[in-house]
């Protein structure tokens, strides 16, 4: 048994930080991400897998089953696409969303309110922006993992119609990043389980109605505006354009939408963490 603890000079590296973000960012979000990866060792893999299967089941029942009755769908640019290939990219966007939301909402809620994880982190030299970035990066990883699995399923059924389908992977990262970022921001304002249920209340209709299973043109114009304001529609349209090869400059708007979503989510998460644990 040692009686004295060796002291090691300069164990903590000198702080190199920008003047602007000095008090909120230590450039060490990888430590937060590393913690998340290490913690997955104790998580329940069945729960992790269940999130992946949900969109796959939809693809099988609706795409293959219902698709045999529907035949093809005509897209906005006049392309004829088999029904399964029409909804598969939408479900890919959904799996990215589901994965990202899973870790950035309920898991964050528990860590924040019960595990006191962020309180411990922010007592170190780490800043709230490091925590936000690290946790969001971790959350989007699950979204990316689900999406890669789903892409393989799509390839198996021959639902990737163009080489641009490869670009759907970076697009999926973007979409997952957006949902993880906004999801964590919203969760950071939640105090009770009842409030958390509101997230589910929004997610389900958004999943069903975001031009996932049929073109948005079936709605009256007013309804179309509402759908177009929601993030999933942008994700669906972006991925659908890439996997069906139905490309247009309009896809860049969707990219911009997610860039804005990521920024807003990061800003509010950082602000909220700061207000909760450093005020």
């Amino acid at each position: 048994m040692t009686t004295t603890l060796p002291t090691s000079p300069a164990l903590v590296p000198a702080q190199t930080r920008s003047r602007f973000l000095g008090s909120i960012y230590a450039g060490n979000s990888r430590a937060v991400l590393g913690r998340g990866l290490l913690a997955t060792r104790t998580s329940n893999y069945w729960i992790v897998l269940s999130g992946f299967f949900e969109p796959v089941l939809y693809l099988l029942s609706l795409g293959i089953g219902l698709g045999s009755l529907i035949g093809t769908v005509t897209t906005a640019t006049g392309q004829h696409v088999p029904y399964a290939a029409y909804i598969a990219p939408a479900l890919l966007a959904v799996s990215a969303m589901n994965g990202a939301i899973y870790d950035s909402t309920w898991n964050v809620f528990f860590k924040m309110n019960y595990g006191k994880l962020y309180e411990g982190m922010l007592a170190t030299s780490i800043g709230p922006f490091d925590v936000a970035l690290g946790e969001i990066a971790f959350a989007l990883l699950r979204g990316l993992l689900y999406a890669i699995g789903f892409m393989i399923v799509m390839q198996f059924f021959g639902l990737n119609l163009a080489w641009t389908a490869l670009l759907a992977l970076p697009a999926v990262v973007l979409i997952a990043f957006g949902f993880a970022s906004l999801g964590m921001a919203i969760t950071s304002y939640m105090k009770t389980f009842q409030q958390m249920d509101w997230i589910n209340f929004v997610m389900l209709p958004m999943f069903i109605f975001s031009a996932t299973f049929y073109p948005i043109t079936v709605y009256p114009p007013a309804m179309q505006y509402i759908i177009e304001a929601l993030p999933l529609w942008h994700g669906v349209e972006l991925i659908r354009g890439l996997t069906t090869g139905d490309l247009s400059w309009g896809l860049l708007w969707h990219v911009l939408y997610f860039a804005a979503m990521i920024t807003v989510g990061l800003i509010f998460t950082t602000k909220r963490l700061r207000a909760l644990f450093l005020a």
């Binding site: 430590a31 309180e119 007592a123 170190t124």
Partner: peptide, 28 residues
């Protein structure tokens, strides 16, 4: 800092708690 209520990382093992915490300080 030793807070009044333990806020150890429940999802990590004992030794990993120390390692991860050290990583927050940027220790190699």
């Amino acid at each position: 800092v030793v807070p009044q209520a333990d806020n150890l990382d429940q999802e990590l093992r004992v030794r990993d708690n120390l390692i991860v915490y050290g990583r927050y300080f940027g220790i190699p």
